[in-house]
Design a protein around this nucleic acid. Structure first.
Lengths: 223, 223
DNA sequence: CCGAAAAAATGAACGCACTCATTTTCGTCA
DNA sequence: TGACGAAAATGAGTGCGTTCATTTTTTCGG
């Protein structure tokens, strides 16, 4: 590479930012976003979602109250800002940990169990988070959340495809529709648990029974 | 019946109220409750849930703002107050309208179609209502909402039982679990529609496919 | 390096859901 | 009938989420 003499001061900054594709503006925004996410997550966890005020969060992130609303459109929307990345990672890591040789129903159960364990760490937050994910208040996040759902469905379809190959599932079954069914059942029962309609124990029992019904009847049948 | 001389004035009131088991206090509360429900429903419908203030509702019901919170614990809780009765009636009337000789899947579809048509009258209100039903804010209403869910599940179980008798469904299937599955799928897709993730068309298509998958595989099988 | 325009941040002010100390209404019993 | 305690209603007050007119920071062409 040809070596240029080290550029100076003002000029330098411009070159640097051009190089890594990030100007002052973008870096500031990213840092601020990070501080907001950290402050919000910490406060939500320490004192609960309802008891945390946006004033506290903005103070914790060292920004003005109004600034916070440039990063999230509402207090509820903050939940999405804080937890989307974590949920995407959860989906991927949970999937990778599952033994691909397990029976279909056990793979599905294992995936959901990981999700349940994640939410169980803080049921109150999970409740608010799932509530906001389900009844989205900020349309701008729709694509992110569709991506999450899509990621989960993909994993379920992958399980189903492998199960069909193993002759465990009926090949006449549409994997995508089956995945939709499985996820709907999981998600619905999750909501009931988080909202206090059922205990975690009941939740897991019900879920197991429902998955068994659905999957048993999708089993491979000799022609 | 022995005729008593017509009692007079003050005394009369006491006797009357004792007879129909309703004192001034109870009557006042019932009337007030009715005015609140009427005012809230009207305003929600005319200008939407979010655009309606509790001040407007209390003015419409001719009571003080604070009084409203003796009847509903929050603005969201008002939705439950306003719509529970209507929903119970909907469930019963929808059930009665369904031809008991139809195939199982068509009975189930018909029930859900009635629910969908009901919510389609005002999607914004339905969204808020389902949101509040799902993530209940007032524990005191839990029993009412469990009753609603239970009522729906009962109908589904009734369909399933008849289908088993007709040899349409596998008798090995647990009707209650099947009903849970069916309702979970319906409810989950309902939420996606009301939240704007899918159109009504997509909703109905998806639902049909999912119900078909679940029910087809629960069909009667010769031993 | 300057100046102007765009983008981002600010924080005081606002609207609204909800509370609570006080007042009013109602049932009961002498 | 009147008086007393309990239940119900009141509405001004409070706290919090959200907005917006103004200020500050960043970009970029000349």
């Amino acid at each position: 590479m040809a070596a240029h003499p080290k550029p100076r001061s003002a000029k330098r900054k411009r070159v640097d930012s051009a190089q890594n594709g990030e100007g002052r503006r973008e870096r500031n925004k990213r840092e601020k976003r990070g501080r907001i996410v950290a402050a919000a997550r910490g406060l939500f966890q320490k004192q609960g979602y309802a008891n945390t005020t946006v004033q506290q969060i903005s103070k914790g992130a060292k920004i003005a109250a109004g600034t916070l609303f440039l990063y999230a459109k509402s207090k509820e929307d903050l939940l999405i800002l804080v937890f989307t990345d974590e949920m995407m990672e959860l989906i991927e890591s949970a999937y990778l940990e599952i033994d691909p040789d397990l029976p279909f129903i056990e793979q599905v159960s294992a995936l959901f169990k990981r999700f349940i364990a994640y939410h169980a760490r803080d049921v109150d937050i999970a409740r608010e988070l799932i509530r906001e994910i389900t009844f989205l208040s900020n349309r701008d996040r729709a694509s992110d959340l569709v991506a999450i759902t899509q990621a989960i469905l993909e994993k379920l379809v992958a399980f189903a495809d492998r199960a069909v190959e193993r002759r465990e599932l009926d090949p006449g079954i549409d994997g995508a529709v089956l995945a939709d069914c499985l996820f709907s059942i999981y998600y619905q029962q999750l909501q009931r648990w988080l909202s206090g309609y059922t205990t975690r124990r009941q939740f897991e029992r019900n879920l197991a029974a429902m998955l068994a019904l659905l999957i048993d009847s999708s089993r491979y049948r000799k022609r």
